[in-house]
Amino acid sequence: MVTSRAFALCVYCSASTTDPEQLALAARVGAEIAKRGWQLVSGGGNVSMMGALATAARAGGAATIGVIPKHLVHREVADVDSDELVVTDTMRQRKQVMEDRADAFLTLPGGIGTLEEFFETWTGGQLGQHDKPMAILDPAGHYSGLFTWLTELHDRGFVPQEALDRITLTPDLTEAFDALSGE
């Protein structure tokens, strides 16, 4: 008997901000994952945006899969309420498990860790390692400077148009989710 699983969305976001607007954004994303009947794949922390995201997804009935390297179990307070908590040896293993378990990727505001995850996933897609959709939900312009720079890099011949076309950058939650689901 073959059982189908729910569409799995990997979300990259901050594990450090305390900004109430960013925490509310993460909670809205978690609620939308649940509303659509999807499951969440996240970094396995229970703090900041990562915690708000997973808590809201579970509150709406979504399954959550947290993936955390053992050296961050205490620092990011591992999300022991996850339906599945995968503890890896390294950050690289964490990212691979997250990529393998996801059907699509959504990036929310974050810092260098979030950017690193986004760029590695984007590069992997551009190199043909996966063909999963990617979106950035950016209602407050957190990434506007980054995309100004990426457009400049494109104009100078460093970033091909097809790479830029792989990403949906939007301030709108519904538009981001529709792009990820192929609607």
Rank of each mutant, 00 (worst) to 15 (best):
M91V: 14
P133Q: 07
Q129H: 10
R94L: 02
W122N: 07
S82C: 15
L108D: 08
Q129M: 14
A163S: 13
D89I: 00
M134D: 02
Q129S: 10
F105P: 02
S144F: 03
D83E: 08
K70P: 09
P160V: 07
Y143A: 02
V87I: 14
Q129K: 12
H130N: 01
L153P: 10
L137F: 04
L85F: 11
A102G: 06
D83C: 14
D100A: 08
F158I: 00
K132V: 00
F147H: 07
R94E: 04
D100I: 00
A78F: 09
I65A: 11
R166G: 02
F118L: 15
T107S: 12
F158E: 06
Q93N: 00
G111A: 08
L85C: 10
R166P: 00
D131W: 05
G145L: 01
G124Q: 13
A140T: 01
A78Q: 09
Q129E: 02
T90Y: 02
D83R: 12
A63C: 14
D138F: 10
G124M: 06
S82L: 13
I136D: 12
L106V: 04
L153D: 02
G145Y: 07
V86K: 08
T88S: 12
F105M: 00
V97L: 09
P139E: 01
L137W: 07
V159P: 06
G157D: 04
T90I: 01
G145W: 08
T123V: 15
K95T: 00
H154Q: 08
G145T: 04
H74C: 04
R166S: 11
R75N: 09
L108R: 10
K70C: 05
K70R: 13
A135V: 06
G145K: 11
R166I: 00
D155F: 01
A104W: 09
K132M: 04
G66N: 13
I65Q: 15
L108W: 08
